[in-house]
Nucleic acid binder design. Structure first.
Length: 156
DNA sequence: GCCAACGTTGGC
DNA sequence: GCCAACGTTGGC
């Protein structure tokens, strides 16, 4: 089983939005970056766990845990000219973009902010902390996953 | 709102 | 195939 981190802008889709979805499940549409797509298409498996991360907001932070509940399938929003993620170059018969479904496992007891994560040398190898990392999906090592979970119940 | 980083596009 | 221009991401 693998661990991941997925970014979402809370203004467009927050952890609470996920919690309100039927079955607390959402298809992860709109990924238009090949590296992120490859990870979803080739490596994400049902049961993999995901840190849900709020980006481009007042306090960027890991806010919850989700699990992959459906493995990669074509991202239908790429075929819909009305959709903001429409890709005119996409051939529906040879889909270029993929998505997975994720289901909320739980919100964290407290948000663990990017600023806090940066304080720990143990996490220095996280791609999230690399300078100007723009990937919306990235792997998390088991070691880092467990380290971050321990922070959850640590007094701030 | 600024700016650094970096992916994509398109002319040559 | 190179590379400049442009667009997007995302922290601050």
């Amino acid at each position: 089983m693998k661990y991941w981190l997925m970014k979402s802008e809370p203004d467009s889709f927050s952890i609470d939005d996920l919690a309100r979805k039927p079955k607390q499940t959402q298809h992860w549409d709109g990924v238009r970056n090949y590296q992120a797509r490859n990870m979803m298409r080739d490596e994400m498996k049902s049961g993999d766990l995901v840190f849900f991360y709020h980006s481009s907001c007042k306090q960027p932070a890991i806010v919850g845990i989700a699990e992959v509940c459906r493995e990669a399938y074509p991202d239908f929003t790429a075929n819909d000219p009305e959709n903001k993620y429409y890709d005119p170059k996409n051939d529906p018969d040879k889909p270029r973009w993929y998505m997975v479904d994720i289901r909320l496992v739980r919100k964290l007891a407290r948000d663990i902010s990017l600023a806090e994560l940066k304080q720990y040398g143990e996490l220095a190898d996280m791609p999230l902390l690399a300078r100007a990392n723009r990937l919306s999906i990235m792997p998390v090592s088991k070691t880092n996953w467990q380290f971050i979970l321990k922070l959850e119940n640590k007094p701030v």
